[in-house]
Design a protein around this nucleic acid. Structure first.
Length: 457
RNA sequence: GUGGACGUAGCUCAGCUGGUAGAGUCCCGGAUUGUGAUUCCGGUCGUCGUGGGUUCGAGUCCCAUCGUUCACCCCA
């Protein structure tokens, strides 16, 4: 009989248990911080009605959507009317519109679920991946102050994730559009194309961008292009520096002035939220997905690993749910693409395989003593220590090997010798040493050991 | 969707100008009966991606096909 190859489709992140534990620790940390800032949990179905997902977008996004259809409908040749969500923002819009009367505003929600995109396989790009989003949605209006709160959450999350120094970079789309307008690029469509081009600055270099913008298709004057390039190269080194650089842009159209005022307020408030000046900065090249962002935009990067790119991004959108409701629902949100982040951190050697969630393995020396082993395990579990008991026996060496490979750090041995002396042997598989402890002291001792192990990492 | 590269054991790969497959690793077992990860010994594993062609003979040449991967597009 021919075997079916055991394989997954490309672009999915499937992990071995110890890596899965490391991944889930990150999820836990993110969730803990989101909740700490007062965000409420929401989950939405992976499958939505296709027309709900595809109303606003179309074009590029539609090409990446997975359509879903029941076998019955498929056999009848019907067009699929269901699809897998490709982000969490569109479902949020639908959610808020649908439950508007039952929610309290400003509505602060967090959501950590998998989304699906029909991408061509590529390094670090997934077809199924986790997004960890927070958004604040206002009814009729939403204070700009919320734009400053999100960086505070980001700061809290990444500080606790302990993946090295990072910088939250900010820009404002009104400021960009206003500046481009002052250079004669007034058409929003063209502004968008210019921004998209400018977004490639880091990747392609200034020369390439200059050539493209002055070349046909754009046809901007060399003088205007130089101004644009100078604009997008603005970075701040401190809060005061950010203020100064914004002022140095000079007077401009309404949009520019508005963007500048917003940025200044947000930058100042972020500081008041307790984010150190070293961890956020003005970066006028940040453009982001321009389809729905209207004001503040964010990107966060790791200072020591710029090649990883943005590990968290988001921004302000004026009208989130316009496709679903006549209510005006402005919002601001950010998203951490955790699958990609985890994958890249692992590539860069910044996250290690975790230890097992099992703290202790109770070995089996003598089958007749099984009740004693089970009682011992029960005692440990009651004390909150995750414990596994070897039920199949076998050589002790094998049992240690099992523990080691499974990432279980401590093995407990209770054999003839120990029983006679009223003690238990505890072996630390990681350090490679072992010691005896009187039976009654076991829980206390293990607690100390586990605490130390956790502290040492 | 556009363009390029590559397809040999689970994994990483070797196989020179064509003569019916190899290494390392992994996994399993053993090295006197209560000690893993190191060492030593032994073992399992492949219709050389698939189909066709050239040839006395193809992993090795040609064509097709499928798959994987990189870049673009776009994005987390």
């Amino acid at each position: 009989m021919a075997l079916t190859p055991a394989r997954t489709m490309p672009g999915v992140l499937e992990l071995l248990p110890l890596d899965q534990i490391a991944f889930q620790r990150m999820l836990d940390t993110i969730r803990r911080n989101y909740e700490r800032f007062g965000f409420l949990p929401v989950e939405t179905p992976a499958i939505e009605f296709a027309d709900v997902l595809l109303t606003k977008t179309g074009g590029e996004t539609e090409r990446q959507v997975y359509f879903v259809q029941s076998t019955g409908a498929l056999e009848q040749g019907e067009k699929p009317d269901l699809a897998l969500r490709f982000d969490l923002t569109v479902p949020l819009a639908r959610y808020v519109a649908e439950h508007e009367r039952d929610l309290s505003f400003p509505f602060r929600r967090y959501q950590m679920q998998r989304v699906y995109r029909g991408e061509r396989a590529q390094r670090g790009r997934f077809r199924e991946f986790y997004q960890c989003d927070i958004d604040v949605i206002g009814k009729d209006s939403l204070s700009i102050r919320y734009d400053a709160e999100l960086p505070a959450v980001i700061y809290s999350v990444f500080r606790e994730l302990a993946i090295g120094p990072f910088t939250i970079q900010l820009n404002n789309r009104k400021l960009m559009r206003g500046y481009f307008e002052s250079l004669g690029v007034a058409d929003p469509e063209q502004q968008m194309l210019v921004l998209r081009e400018v977004d490639k600055l880091d990747k392609r270099g200034a020369g390439h961008v200059r050539d493209t913008l002055t070349g046909e298709g754009f046809g901007l004057s060399p003088a205007a292009v130089e101004k644009i390039l100078a604009f997008v190269q603005v970075r701040s080194s401190s809060l005061q520096d950010a203020y100064d650089k914004l002022d140095a842009l000079g007077a401009g159209p309404e949009a520019l002035e508005q963007g500048r005022a917003e940025l200044k307020e947000v930058l100042g408030l972020i500081h008041a939220f307790g984010v150190p000046e070293t961890h956020y900065a003005l970066n006028l090249s940040i453009a982001r997905g321009l389809d729905y962002y209207t004001g503040t935009v964010y990107e966060t990067t790791l200072n020591e690993h710029p090649q990883i790119g943005s590990i968290c991004s988001g921004g302000r959108y004026e009208n989130l749910a316009g496709q679903y409701t006549r209510s005006h629902l402005p919002g601001v949100g950010i998203s951490i693409g955790l699958s990609r982040l985890y994958w890249q951190l692992r590539e860069a050697g910044l996250v290690a395989t975790a230890q097992s969630t099992v703290d202790v393995l109770v070995t089996q020396m003598d089958e007749a003593q099984l009740p004693a082993y089970l009682a011992l395990a029960g005692e440990l579990r009651a004390a909150g220590i995750a414990t596994e008991v070897v039920l199949e026996g076998g050589k002790l060496g094998k049992q240690f090997k099992y523990a080691d490979r499974a990432g279980i750090r401590f093995a407990v041995v209770l054999g003839e010798d120990e029983l006679a002396k009223g003690v238990v042997t505890v072996k630390d598989l990681r350090r490679g040493d072992q010691f005896e402890v009187v039976r009654a002291e076991l829980v206390k001792t293990l607690r100390v050991e586990l605490e130390q192990a956790a502290a040492m990492g």
